[in-house]
Write a protein that binds this DNA or RNA. Structure first.
Lengths: 95, 95
DNA sequence: TAACCCGTAACGTTATACGTTACAGTTCAT
DNA sequence: ATGAACTGTAACGTATAACGTTACGGGTTA
C-alpha cells in the first residue's frame, strides 16, 4: 500500500550510476556487455530491466541484482494496477 | 544472500490456493478471467506470473499482488544468477 | 455406449528484449 | 573548414513468452 508512482528504473539507473560516474552510453554499454541500443532503450524508458540485465548491473556497479529487479517489478505492477478495476475477476472465498 | 532455490510460483499457487480450496483448473481459470490453458501453464511451470496475473490473483484470492509478483521475480532472478559467472561484464569503479 | 467435463498439446497473435545496421549531430585533427 | 571519428537513437530482424482458440485423450456418469 506504499506505492507512489515509482519512476522508470532507467531513470534511476541514469541518475544513480551513469551520470554521477560521468559515463557515456557507449562506455557503460560496452562494460555491461550489451549493445548501445539496448542500454539506450532502458535509459529512455523504452525497455525494462530484465533479470539478466539486473545481474549485469550488479556485476558492473557492485549493487544487488535483487534491488534492480525489484524496482522493475514495482514499476510493472504500478502499471498493471491501473487496470485493476477493469479486470473481470470473480472473488473466490475460502469454503 | 538469502535465496534458497525458490519454488516456481505456480507450485505455490497450487498448494496455497487451488488445492486447499478444492478448485479445478477450469473453475479457477474462469474466476480469474483467463483461459484454462493460461492457468494450466502457470501451475505446471511452463509460464510465469505476469504483472496482470498478479493483480488477478490479488482480486480472486484477496492477497497482495506484490507478493505474487515478488515471488516470480525471485524465481526469475535465481535462474538469471546461474549465468552470473559466464557474463562478460567489466566492473565500473567510482571515480 | 454416449454425453459430458477435465487438463493439456498444437497453433496463431502480440509484445518485448536483444543484436545489427543505418543515420543525424558533435567533436576534433588536419 | 572539411573530413574522420565518435555519440545517441531510429529502423529492421529474431527469439522468447504470455495470451486466446481449437482440438484431443482420459475420466465420470447417465
Amino acid at each position: 500500500m506504499k506505492m507512489h508512482n515509482p519512476p522508470h528504473p532507467g531513470e534511476v539507473l541514469r541518475e544513480l550510476c551513469i551520470d554521477p560516474m560521468g559515463l557515456s552510453i557507449t562506455e557503460a554499454a560496452e562494460a555491461l556487455g550489451v549493445s548501445r541500443k539496448t542500454l539506450s532503450a532502458i535509459l529512455n524508458g523504452h525497455a525494462g530491466i530484465s533479470p539478466e540485465m539486473a545481474v549485469r548491473l550488479s556485476l558492473a556497479f557492485g549493487t544487488s541484482s535483487e534491488s534492480w529487479l525489484n524496482q522493475q517489478s514495482q514499476y510493472d505492477l504500478w502499471e498493471a494496477e491501473k487496470k485493476r478495476k477493469s479486470l473481470k475477476v470473480r472473488k473466490l472465498s475460502a469454503v
